[in-house]
Amino acid sequence: MTTHDRLDMTAGLPWCVAAWLLGVGLYGVATSRNYVHLVACLTVVQSATYVVLLCVGYRWGAGPPIFYAHPPGTPAVDPVVQALVLTDIVVGATVSALLLAMCVQLHKRKGTLDPERLRPMRQ
């Protein structure tokens, strides 16, 4: 595997997209006035990780890493990062589900989801 020049083989575009998603997602989280919106922004931050990982493993002109129809040795994209992305999706789903469940409970108790009006430990 010529892992060393993997970065140089891919164009810069996916990296720019990932950086943009990370930045815009963090901006959304920082300025959000509603926790459901905030959770959505958090998933935008997470999609930056998908783009980074897929871009790392991508190889021009290669097929999917499934050797059912092709003989082993056919050029294929890196299966390791695809496994990482799968794990990432599971983690992301868990965190979002937990956050949204907390939002539901909080809304039941306080009747609002505005971070400005919900502060733990107001002094």
Partner: peptide, 18 residues
């Protein structure tokens, strides 16, 4: 957010080291 930053970092280092 910390977890996602970590994963981005892992992606980058994997790109270099394989």
């Amino acid at each position: 957010i910390g977890g996602y930053l970590m994963l981005c970092g892992i992606g980058l280092i994997y790109a270099r080291a394989g």
